[in-house]
Design a protein around this nucleic acid. Structure first.
Lengths: 216, 216
DNA sequence: GGATAATTTGACCGATTGGTAAACATTACA
DNA sequence: TGTAATGTTTACCAATCGGTCAAATTATCC
């Protein structure tokens, strides 16, 4: 007889680890492409290569699957912002933040779309994470940027909207990939578009944030 | 007996106009909030205040509803880009394009989310519009920007990625509204955030595109 | 006012949804 | 090797899905 699920967290089998990994990988595929409501357990089961009841043996509900996925991905996703260093050179910090975010858009588009889908639909499952850990992290880094601006290392600007701008411009290449490719056309839709984007965004942000020489 | 639907387009009743309007308004509400797959005809019917079969009398399928909605909204949505004037002052044109796009994010967030949902999930229903009319319009405006850059009126930059950046930064305030509010906190989530955003984005883009004084 | 066309609804359909029950198969460990 | 715990599957459930149908209601026009 199967043990109650609560016990599973106490001692985890090799099989459990493997299968849960397999399931979350499939769930990322499906949820990121169709959103929570648009996804079905059957689809995830098919991608994962197992039966639906088997999925539900590891995750009791569709919600539980989604939550586990979000939890696993959120920490990694905020890594670049966390790496933002108050002691570093402002221009270089911003430049490398943009670069890192663009790399993530290129290498982990599913993760980006997972969150985009979620937030776009009102963030019903991650409201707490947004208002708690995320806001706290952004507040902290905004303070760093504000200090840079105050000391004249970069132009005076609203740090929150600066962060929003970096998020939106970089994640755009993951979330709206289809549109980007459609507009660029087949000939410019190769991986080179990320280098072009990086070049442009660095120019935009470094130029746009260059401190006023009058020091006002 | 009801006339075949094809005939409806020939002569449209007052009731037809009103009801179709009502339905599309409700459909915009639902589709923009939950995406195509996540929405149900029943939900739209409830918002529209009519029965499901009644909806299906005016639009034969859920797809037909969605398509009619997209068709109606797409033209308006591209209006700001269309207004981009090659003869105008570059700095002022970019500034007012940003302002207009931000106003649309503020005043028509549902329209923005409708497209965001669609593109995010692979644009299964609007691929043709993206590769056709949209690409054509962007190509045209990109040429204008390129000319400005060539003549030294603005800095040399990739016009496509410039347009992407303006799209993403402005639409961010509609599509990721929940996140923006969560991060800004209750005290800064008033309508003033759009003015703050406008100020920042103008600073960013105008500063970032200021022509190199060496004229290189 | 009556005939005819247009509109609206309740009842219903097969397919799909998230999820369950219980039998069956496999693994781990003494 | 035996047995208890773990893992998997088949068959199924009620609810909801997109959509149909025929009957009932309302609007239009002579």
């Amino acid at each position: 007889m199967a043990i109650p699920r609560a016990a599973k967290t106490l001692r985890r089998t090799r099989i459990q680890e493997e299968k849960e990994e397999q399931i979350l990988e499939a769930a990322l595929d499906v949820f990121s492409a169709r959103g929570f409501r648009g996804s079905t357990i059957d689809q995830i089961a098919e991608v994962a290569g197992m039966s639906k009841p088997n999925l539900l043996y590891y995750f009791r509900t569709k919600e539980a699957m989604h939550r586990a996925l979000i939890d696993r991905v959120l920490y990694t996703w905020l890594e670049p912002l966390r790496a933002f260093d108050a002691e570093g050179n402002p221009e270089e910090e911003i430049r490398s933040y943009i670069r890192r975010k663009l790399e993530m858009a290129r290498d982990f588009p599913r993760e980006s779309r997972l969150f985009a889908n979620e937030v776009l639909q009102g963030a019903p499952h991650i409201e707490d994470e947004l208002k708690g850990p995320l806001k706290q992290l952004v507040d902290e880094k905004a303070e760093v940027i504000r200090a840079w601006a105050k000391s004249g290392k970069i132009a005076k600007c609203d740090p929150y909207h600066l962060i929003f701008s970096i998020w939106s411009t970089t994640q755009h290449y993951a979330d709206f990939d289809v549109q980007v490719r459609a507009v660029l056309g087949q000939e410019h839709s190769g991986e080179g578009r990320f280098e072009d984007a990086a070049r442009f965004l660095e120019q935009l942000f470094i130029g746009g944030l260059r401190p006023d020489p009058r020091g006002s």
